[in-house]
Computed example of a mutant assay.
Amino acid sequence: MNYAKPRIGLVGSQGSYGRWLRHFFEARMGLEVFGRDPSGETVLSERALIEAVDVLIFCAPIRQTPAVIQHYVKHAAGIERKQLWMDITSIKVVPVAAMLASQAQVVGLHPMSAAPKSPTLRGRAMVVCQARLDTWRPWFEQFLAATEADCVHADADQHDRIMALVQGMVHATHMAQGAVLRELAPAVGGLEGIRPFSSVGYELDSAVTRRILASNPAIYQDIQFENPYVEPMLERLAVHVGALCELVRSGHDTARQQLREKLLDKSRVYVGEQALAEGSYAFERLGYLLADLREPRYISVFLPLDRPGSLRALLSAFEQRGVNLDSIHSSRSAEGELLFRMGLSRDCDADALRDAMLAIERDGIGRVVEAAGVDVSSVNP
């Protein structure tokens, strides 16, 4: 057993997290990775995969994960006793219990995001449920450090209770919003008709709803159906939405006061002044960010990740030519490249901007990905 450089096995290696984990272990930790997936990677049988690895990670669909783990426990038949088994699943009680039926050491993991385009989980939370961990602890700690995730430790039951609120409630409300928009928006011009009237709150909610609708529906189905704590949460949610409907229907002044007391004042006291202030400030910051991203005059530049001082050189290219920047934000393209998006002053000179763009490319500072809102096509290089 090689605790320093273990061989990694991925069950579900062709899924989004399977592919991300393969790249992570190979590129970031320098480890050898073996995989099995019914969608294209079946060279190794289940038994052969278990025999080939030291760490086995299950990254199958939520609904299938417990049965897949049970299947591997039967195939292992004791040869896993010195291994570490982990899963990447949004539900923890049942998968962790299934892994504990093996003789391996067991940890349940839940990264709180879809598989990222970035090489690590920096800036994202990951729930860690240590169920049976001993000799693998030193390597496991190295693994967590390499992910750069903000790790929060919990037992499996605590995780599922919290996920009913963090995931189940959020997804449910946005799926319902999507259905309401589908039914009522056509009467007011559809989604395009609503867009010019958007508030910050609507834009944020709309982004979450569209993200859910654009993603794999099986994930959202399984989060609602496989977590036993979701149903009682939905019942409470329905109670409060139903009560709100009845209060609005009545229209009386007393109903207005009841709405304020039950749905605003009591919750305001529960949340607390400090959290309210922090939330209001976060909302304002997101509003400013959305305003910057709506600015039609901007330039996006890809910078190499491994060149210290490249951002300074980029900004200098604009400064030397008198190009004023209204904002600058970092993000990632659909392909995962790190981009800097810079909003341009409304009086930006096209000649100066074109010169800066040429210098960025010519001097190897970066690659201009996009320029919008300023006509530079007629400017000679």
Rank of each mutant, 00 (worst) to 15 (best):
Y3E: 06
Q14M: 14
Q14W: 07
Y17K: 05
L21V: 07
R22E: 10
A27D: 13
R36G: 02
V43W: 08
S45H: 06
E46P: 04
E46I: 11
V53Y: 03
L56G: 03
I57Q: 00
F58L: 09
P61T: 08
I62S: 00
V73M: 03
I79L: 15
R81N: 15
L84M: 07
W85N: 02
K92W: 05
V93R: 08
V94H: 10
P95N: 10
M99T: 00
M99Y: 02
L109N: 01
G123E: 13
M126S: 11
M126E: 12
R137Y: 03
W139L: 11
E141P: 01
F143S: 01
L144P: 00
L144A: 06
A145Y: 04
D150I: 10
C151M: 04
D155W: 09
Q158V: 13
D160S: 08
M163G: 00
M169E: 15
A176N: 07
A176C: 12
A185D: 03
P186H: 07
P186T: 08
A187N: 08
E192A: 14
I194M: 10
I194Y: 03
P196I: 12
V200H: 10
R210K: 09
L213T: 12
S215C: 07
P217H: 12
Y220V: 05
Y229Q: 07
E231C: 04
E235H: 08
V241P: 01
L247P: 00
G251E: 04
A255P: 03
A255G: 05
R256Q: 15
Q258K: 14
K262Y: 06
K266N: 13
S267N: 13
S267C: 14
V269I: 14
Y270N: 05
A275P: 04
S280M: 14
E284S: 07
Y288Q: 15
L289D: 09
L289F: 09
R294I: 12
E295M: 08
R297A: 13
Y298T: 00
I299K: 02
I299S: 00
S300G: 02
A313T: 09
A317I: 02
G322A: 10
V323W: 03
V323F: 04
R332M: 05
S333F: 07
E335S: 14
L339A: 02
M342C: 14
G343F: 01
D351P: 00
L353V: 09
A356L: 05
A356F: 04
M357L: 13
L358H: 05
I360K: 05
E361V: 10
G364I: 06
G364T: 08
A371Q: 10
D375I: 06
V379W: 01
